[in-house]
């Protein structure tokens, strides 16, 4: 369990980092928190020719409020996201999700953007980025670009990032004031990768659900949004019957895998159970003032 030989570049700036990536001939890797990358290198599942360490680049470790979004820089650690006041006030669902992210030592190093780039189908960050209509800020020697999270997250451990590109920040949309939210996750032990998880956002108007957003993970090759189920709930009253119906739709929509920890049948059951809990919880929270952007 020792990594193969690699060159190491300590990037002084974003320009320096992407230049080094471009120079690696498609074989470079960005080192931020290293909580997924280093084990994969030790297993020799990944053998980058160049490791570009971005940890000394200034100003990337910031969470800032921009127009309607929170921007998380490339060096924002999980622990910062978990403890950040802006996150807790404006996106409480993300604050709640952070409690499920790994263990203290991992949270101290691992980064939000790194997790989004790693695109593990059972990790919280890609799912929350999808839920919050995230925008990915990408730099390369060819210039900067942005991309919607749904286009960025391609598949299991796979994104639309080019080899000479790095993610410099992720924007998460701040839900409108009064949005109800819920985050439900189940794993074998606290902090493990989820067997299944669901996050829900919804508003309430005239006693009915509005602007419902549902994201799940652990139930497919990637985290998913469920536009059809969201649409089916739009304008409905928040009743147990509606939640049961939505849970059934979700169960029908997913194609979970069987693995060591959970069979597909159990995962589908779990998805339904968590969905019912989360939808009811989110509905209950609608109308609470969250100090949102609106």
């Amino acid at each position: 369990m020792k990594p193969a030989r690699f060159d190491y570049v300590r990037a002084e700036s974003i320009a320096h980092a992407v230049e080094a990536l471009a120079g690696a001939g498609g074989d470079g890797k960005v080192l931020a928190g290293g909580q997924s990358l280093m084990p994969m290198m030790n297993f020799r599942l990944v053998k980058p020719s160049v490791l570009v360490d971005i940890n000394r680049i200034p100003d990337l470790d910031r969470i800032t409020q921009e127009a309607g979004v929170l921007r998380l820089g490339a060096l924002v650690r999980h622990r910062m996201t978990a403890e950040d006041g802006l996150v807790a006030r404006h996106i409480p669902v993300l604050h709640a999700a952070m409690k499920h992210v790994a263990h203290l030592t991992v949270r101290n190093r691992g980064t939000f953007c790194g997790s989004v780039c790693h695109a593990d189908p059972a990790a919280e960050m890609p799912m929350m980025t999808l839920l919050l209509d995230g925008t990915i800020h990408i730099a390369s020697p060819r210039g900067d670009r942005t991309m919607a999270a749904r286009d960025f997250l391609v598949g299991s451990l796979s994104t639309a990032l080019e080899p000479d590109e790095m993610v410099v920040a992720v924007d998460l949309a701040i839900p409108e004031d009064g949005t109800g939210w819920a985050f439900e996750e189940f794993s074998r032990r606290h902090g493990d990768y989820a067997l299944a998880a669901i996050a829900v956002l919804m508003a309430r108007a005239d006693g009915r659900m509005r602007n419902v957003r549902i994201a799940m993970m652990g139930i497919a090759d990637t985290a998913l949004r469920f536009a059809d189920v969201e649409a089916a709930l739009e304008g409905r009253e928040g009743t147990p019957a509606a939640f049961d119906e939505a849970a059934a739709l979700l169960q029908a929509a997913i194609q979970p895998n069987s693995d060591l920890n959970a069979s597909a049948d159990y995962r589908r059951h779990l998805a339904g159970a968590l969905a019912r809990r989360a939808l009811a919880e989110a509905w209950q929270r609608t109308g609470e003032t969250t100090g949102g952007a609106a």
């Binding site: 074998r188 067997l195 069979s263 049948d265 159990y266």
Partner: peptide, 11 residues
């Protein structure tokens, strides 16, 4: 006795 085993037993 894992959640998956219990699920199957209960089912």
């Amino acid at each position: 006795v894992t959640p998956d085993r219990l699920f199957r037993l209960v089912q």
